[in-house]
Design a protein around this nucleic acid. Structure first.
Length: 570
RNA sequence: GGGCCUGUAGCUCAGUUGGUUAGAGCAGAGCGCUCAUAACGCUUUUGUCGUAGGUUCGAGUCCUACCGGGCCUACCA
């Protein structure tokens, strides 16, 4: 048994995420966590809301709530949605927690004592009307290059030229539109990542089998231009982890907080501590996952994230942990995802285009989304959500292949033998053949799950379902029954065992349907089939079962057209 | 501008370190079955593997150029 630590990128607190965010980290990490638990491994699966930063403060202001209250409310909203998608986090924390404050401050102090933090004085734009410093992209003005009036302080969207806020002509606040801006001198702490470049580079080189997407992004940052640059880790904001605290090896940082990207990944650790607190465990319990001197040396740590998060997880977070000089557990495997697009374009919050997580749950059961999203996950390149594809996947894979298999077997049995596993007859070549086919597919399924190639895993899982239909067609119990009821009974007995097996194997992807299948089969044993022959005899003669209600309802063409219109936006 | 990814049947995608007749699902066509959510099974049509060169006994797979799509480029997170 292995110990596997799994973290999903933290969803930002400012609003409800869309399906692209879901499929890029939370959903695949959940399937992986469920699979590893099923295989008997000890799993710690962590997620949390990422609550600090300018957008959170602005979203709170827009909602007319104090930021702490806004975040608390939104955490609950996100938690409920996560539950709705059956995301099986061991703990869903908050980056604004007391634990994260402690650990963030602890790590910052350790970095300070190690000489890896320096004070840098820089110029920032302050908006009097907004009462805050503005990040570059919150300043708008006329582009000096192309004349567009909606250029942002970091880049002009029209001509794509990189800009500095001071380049803009007639700069204004993107928040209030105010032109009452002032450039102020302000001091910030920088993490001296540059001095750790070789160490990070060597660490990346030691990682085998990481996705190209992951390593190429890291390498780019390490080697582009002058190489890895130092990074500001503080901001002039109210909401966040205070930079000034007992034991802080610097002064003059009053009123400043750590930059959200400094404290957000630390929340992976802190959320594990929150888990320990919530479960009456001691510090040793969470430290055994994170401190290699306290038991984490045998932990396998896997992170899931969208490609936008890669630099922070391959560089700045490892730099934080390595630089502390303390024996923190570093990530062993980073699984990064591309983007999901919607009907050929981008998901757009402002245009109301695409599907958000809460809406998705209102219109379809979570299993439908889980199945489509994971069997079409953007693992090798961006992938596109279309209602037609979604309808096809749900109707064909779930309703026809799996759902109908369960239905035809259980209903046939009920009408001929009653709702118990029938006795009589013997297994023969057909059973041997389908067992061999499933064994082969199962091995491939397992290989893909271990490699976190979820899309390929769904192909194998589906093939395992199909094998059941093939078997039934070959054995044809409905016609055999007329001359030899016992032979038909053997076929049905085997098929009922297949159904139970499908309930077990499908759980990482469609947990609700799996649970319903297992409950309907009266299956006490839901363990992974380490021995397939044993697993296919788990339902003994005479065991009662129920014919489940329709497991997956099909999506009609009319309904699809309706949904297409509803979500077209514009 | 620089870097990375990507372009394979009508559609969505697999194709390990280059090795005989390029695969799967969906869609289409035909046949079978009738237990089942008009579901299932079998058979089957379609590809100058983006374009043009090159390396090699041999390239979808390696190299170069070009064309198309996408992402990143460090103060959104």
């Amino acid at each position: 048994m292995a110990r596997i630590l799994i973290t999903s990128a933290l969803p930002y607190i400012n609003g409800i995420k869309h399906l692209g965010n879901l499929v890029g980290s939370q959903l695949p990490s959940d399937a992986y966590a469920r699979y590893m638990r099923l295989r008997g491994h000890e799993v710690m699966f962590i997620c949390a809301t990422d609550e600090h930063g300018t957008p959170a403060e602005l979203a709170a202001a827009k909602a007319d709530k104090p930021v702490a209250e806004f975040c608390a409310d939104m955490w609950q909203v996100q938690k409920d949605i996560a539950d709705g998608f059956r995301l099986s986090f061991d703990y869903f924390g908050r980056s604004s927690s007391e634990r994260n404050r402690e650990i963030t401050q602890h790590l910052a102090a350790a970095l300070g004592h190690a000489g890896l933090i320096e004070e840098v004085s820089e110029k920032q734009v302050y908006s009097h009307a907004d009462g805050r410093y503005l990040p570059d992209r919150y300043i708008e003005g006329t582009c000096p290059n192309c004349g567009s009036e909606n250029a942002r302080g970091d880049q002009c969207e029209n001509c794509t030229k990189q800009l500095d806020p001071t380049d803009l002509i007639n700069p204004r606040s993107a928040i209030s539109g105010s032109t009452d801006l002032e450039i102020r001198e302000t001091k910030h702490l920088y993490l001296k990542q540059s001095v750790m470049r070789d160490q990070l580079d060597a660490w990346i080189d030691r990682q085998v089998g990481w996705p190209v997407l992951t390593t190429s992004i890291a390498k780019k940052w390490l080697h582009d231009g002058d190489g890895l640059r130092d990074r500001g880790i503080t901001r002039d904001l109210d909401w966040g982890v205070p930079v000034q605290f007992d034991g802080a090896p610097w002064s003059g940082m009053e009123g400043k907080v750590f930059y959200v990207w400094f404290d957000a990944p630390i929340e992976y650790i802190s959320a594990t501590a929150e888990w320990a607190d919530a479960n009456g465990q001691t510090d040793a319990a969470w430290e055994s996952w994170w401190r290699t001197d306290k038991g984490a040396d045998n932990v396998h740590y896997v992170q899931f994230m969208g490609k936008d998060n890669v630099p922070f997880h391959t560089l700045s977070f490892p730099a934080t942990l390595m630089g502390s000089g303390e024996p923190w557990k570093l990530v062993d495997f980073i699984k990064s995802y591309n983007w999901l697009t919607y009907e050929g374009g981008k998901f757009s919050t402002s245009a109301g285009r695409g599907i958000f997580m809460n809406q998705a749950l209102e219109i379809m059961p979570s299993d439908y989304w889980r199945w489509w999203l994971l069997s079409n996950a953007p693992e090798s390149s961006d992938s596109d959500f279309t209602w037609e594809s979604f309808q096809g996947g749900v109707n064909k894979d779930l309703a026809d292949v799996l759902g109908n298999f369960v239905s035809r077997v259980t209903k046939f049995c009920r009408s001929k033998f009653g709702e118990i596993v029938p006795e009589g007859g013997k297994y023969g070549e057909a059973e041997t053949a389908v067992t061999a086919e499933i064994a082969k597919r199962l091995t491939a399924y397992q290989t893909h799950m271990e490699a976190i190639e979820l899309r390929k895993a769904t192909v194998e899982l589906r093939a395992i379902w199909v094998a059941g239909n093939e078997y039934l067609q070959t054995a044809a119990p409905w016609s055999v029954y007329k001359q030899d009821p016992e032979a038909a009974a053997a076929t049905i007995r085997f098929a009922l065992n297949l159904i139970r097996l499908y309930g077990v194997l499908s759980a990482p992807f469609i947990p609700d349907a799996s649970a319903r299948i297992l409950a309907a089969m009266g299956a006490a044993d839901a363990a992974w089939p380490d021995d397939l022959d044993v697993a296919l005899n788990a339902m003994p003669v005479g065991q009662a079962f129920e014919v489940p209600e329709v497991l997956f309802a099909k999506i009609s063409d009319e309904r699809r057209v309706e949904l297409e219109a509803q979500f077209a936006g514009g």
